[in-house]
Design a protein around this nucleic acid. Structure first.
Length: 680
RNA sequence: GGCGGGAUAGCUCAGUUGGUUAGAGCGUCGGAUUCAUAACCCGGAGGUCUCGAGUUCAAUUCUCGAUCCCGCUACCA
């Protein structure tokens, strides 16, 4: 495919949600790759902007605030600050890092909505929603809890059940309760605006499926999957008070839905940086927009936000949306709520001066094509056997030798031998390969290419053996050391996008003032006669005890999680023996048990109830082999109305205990009883 | 169950528009060396390219099916 020429590039990185600090998953997935890409373009002298900011609206923030007894603003102030500092600490070189509670953003998002509203791009729909009469407000999403209609979990939220993972509407919940007052809400009519995504489906289809076949397979495939399933209108407003007020006259108590508000943050942040110059980055045809995101955000950045931009009509669509998969930690999913993460701010405290080590490991191990695993042992090994042994060691050798033989003065290069030329030829080739990899978002490979320069350097010294020649042929040693130092200078350029702190440190030792990407591959970067400094170690070995301490910390968190998981839930509202008596609970013997076809979780039972038997369907297929249950006695509720599952009529409900890890264990009598007896 | 992504050396990954002995780094084993952070350099071992079938003169690569992992989705009284 022919390369397009762009005059400027706008790089965005997914807006971190301001309800917690950032962790290595965010860094590996989004911020480090985006930073590498941006630094590379800057180094090439291209016109590039790198924008980001905290995403500070949405219900989880208000809930968290409520829990802590502070305002939502307090929460976002706290985390915005921590996140911003972490980014800075790790050298994520945003040109602007703002937030969606900024005045600029409020105005921008509001205007964006207004324009689409006035163009008639929204559909109005009136529907019933849960309303808390005491708090006098509608209960969106997580403001309402109740029993999940699917799995029976009794602390499901209005938008999702965290037990079974199903997406819900608040009105689906059984026995809904307001999270604000605990009252039972009532249904009340409310009006909302919807974005008709279906209208943009043909345009999106053409744009992605025909014009962007080069996108990563995961991104392209995911988009295709959504488009083939057809897009539905999506609400752009919510009944909440935390967010950007819907800018329509006479509308009160409604805000823009966070998914609509957040991506506009990219625009408002650009505006904040360049109040007069922002538009050309977003609107001119020779601008390239690149969104760095995680795979959970593909639908928003590839379908929904572009649809919004199309509806506006004046914006460019992204040129690429490099999306990474997920990073695991020591074999388990990273989880904010379970504290299973390495937090950026904590890393910076525990490993001062080692920002580049984390950057290096996260890039070397980036989940570019599939989920990947971060382990502390790998972290240590990559530091010790790659950064220290290959890169740091080469720099140290070159500088030690220069100081030893030439008192730190860079010697002249004389006639080059064939071997010298061969070495130089090899390292000149690195530039093109490296560029190609970065431009195609293959940062893992690109970083290897940079490391290859250090390998070439080590081999050069090993093969030419200047420490031996120093006794016989000092002129030759001068040439060798000149070349070795030029390779050092090249390394500081090649690694600048990846390891900016070390590159700077290295430039300090070489007394290099500035660097340009185009100099990569040249051997005249350092002038003979200039001095280099005495070497300090570019990287230091990480000993076992440091790694053991981190592993211990994770082990402790695991233990704590197990303990926390066992905290029994609060006792439910008072009940009576009469309520219990309404349930007809009986014991039955399992006669047959099999998996339900086309369902992952369902088992179909034939249970001897002493009355000729009955069929019961239960969602425990993940925890039992069907044959293991045959002959077992189980408790079931016998007087529920029948219900259909995948075409099978279930005549009752088998009772299970839910263990701390979510496993379901079927309940039965401790000794054999006659099928059909009652449980009292 | 549907859809999407993945499965290549002990580990992390490249790669193949189908074509002689499938690559790299780390690890491992052996050798050499001492300028260097017990580092570097050289060499060896290590792969039925997840499995099965098909197309083909030829399949790790294309097609179909199966298995396993991740995600979305459905079911989950």
């Amino acid at each position: 495919m022919e390369e397009k020429k762009f005059k400027r590039t706008l790089v965005t990185a997914a807006l971190p949600y301001a309800n917690g600090p950032v962790h290595i998953g965010h860094l590996a997935g989004v911020y480090v790759p985006a930073d590498i890409y941006t630094r590379y373009l800057r180094l090439k002298g291209e016109d590039v902007l790198f924008v980001g900011g905290s995403d500070e609206h949405g219900v989880p923030i208000t809930i968290k605030a409520k829990k802590e007894g502070v305002t939502p603003q307090d929460i976002v102030d706290r985390y915005h600050h921590i996140i911003k500092e972490s980014m800075k600490g790790l050298g994520i070189s945003f040109d602007v890092y703002s937030r969606t509670t900024s005045e600029m953003h409020k105005r921008t998002a509001s205007d964006f909505f207004k324009k689409l509203y006035e163009k008639g791009e929204f559909i109005e729909k009136t529907g019933q929603q849960l309303y808390d009469e005491q708090a006098r407000q509608f209960l969106a999403d997580r403001y309402v809890t109740g029993t999940c209609p699917h799995c029976g979990f009794d602390h499901a939220y209005g938008d999702q059940c965290e037990s079974c993972g199903t997406s819900l509407n608040a009105t689906d919940l059984i026995g809904p309760k307001s999270a604000i007052t605990g009252n039972v809400p009532v249904l009340k009519e409310t009006k909302h605006w919807y974005m008709p995504l279906d209208k943009w489906e043909p345009a999106l289809r053409k744009w992605i499926l025909e014009e962007h076949k080069e996108w990563r397979p995961n991104v392209y495939g995911q988009c295709k999957s959504w488009l083939d399933d057809h897009l539905q209108p999506r609400a752009v407003t919510r009944d909440l008070d935390w967010g950007i007020p819907v800018p329509i006259d006479g509308v009160e108590g409604k805000v823009l839905y966070v998914w609509f508000d957040a991506p506009i943050g990219y625009i408002s942040n650009t505006k904040e940086l360049l109040p007069d110059g922002w538009e050309k980055y977003w609107k001119e045809k020779d601008s390239r927009i690149v969104h760095f995101i995680g795979k959970d955000n593909i639908v928003f950045h590839c379908l929904i936000f572009p649809a919004m931009l199309m509806a506006d009509g004046s914006y460019q669509l992204p040129e690429n949306v490099p999306s990474n998969e997920f990073l695991n930690l020591e074999g388990d999913k990273i989880s904010t709520s379970r504290n299973w993460a390495i937090w950026a701010n904590e890393y910076l405290e525990d490993f001062p001066g080692k920002q580049d080590v984390l950057r290096y490991v996260l890039t070397a191990n980036a989940p570019e094509t599939k989920d990947n695993d971060f382990t502390w042992k790998d972290f240590q090994q990559r530091n010790n056997s790659e950064l220290v042994a290959i890169y740091g060691n080469f720099i140290n050798r070159a500088l030690v030798l220069t100081n030893k033989y030439f008192d730190g003065v860079i010697p002249e290069a004389h006639d080059l031998t064939d071997y010298d030329k061969q070495t130089l030829e090899e390292f000149k080739g690195v530039k093109g390969i490296l560029e190609d990899n970065i431009e195609h978002f293959h940062f893992r490979e690109a970083q290897k290419d940079a490391m290859n320069l250090a390998r070439i350097g080590n081999k050069y010294l090993a093969d030419t053996e200047p420490w031996k020649l120093a006794k016989t042929d000092m002129a030759r040693v001068e040439t060798i050391m000149n070349i070795a130092l030029q390779i050092c200078a090249n390394l500081s350029i090649a690694f600048e996008p990846f390891l900016p702190f070390s590159s700077e440190k290295l430039r300090g030792m070489l007394n290099m003032e500035k660097i340009e990407w185009e100099k990569l591959g040249h051997i005249d970067i350092l002038k003979a006669g200039n001095k280099v400094e005495k070497p300090v170690l570019l990287f230091e070995k990480i000993e076992d005890d440091v790694i053991d301490a981190q592993l211990l910390r994770l082990e402790r968190i695991k233990q704590e999680n197990i303990i926390n998981n066992f905290t029994p839930r609060a006792i439910a509202t008072p009940s009576t023996i009469d309520d219990f008596g309404k349930l007809d609970i009986r014991v039955g013997t399992v006669l047959e048990c099999s998996k339900v076809k086309k369902a992952d979780k369902l088992l179909q039972f034939k249970v001897d109830d002493g009355l000729g038997g009955r069929t019961i369907v239960s969602g425990i297929a993940k925890f039992y082999e069907p044959e293991d249950l045959v002959g077992k006695q189980v408790c079931f509720i016998a007087n529920f109305p029948p219900r259909n599952f995948k075409g099978i009529e279930s005549q009752g409900m088998i009772l299970s205990a839910e263990d701390a890890d979510g496993r379901l264990i079927v309940i039965g009598p401790t000794g054999p009883v006659k099928p059909g007896v009652q449980v009292k």
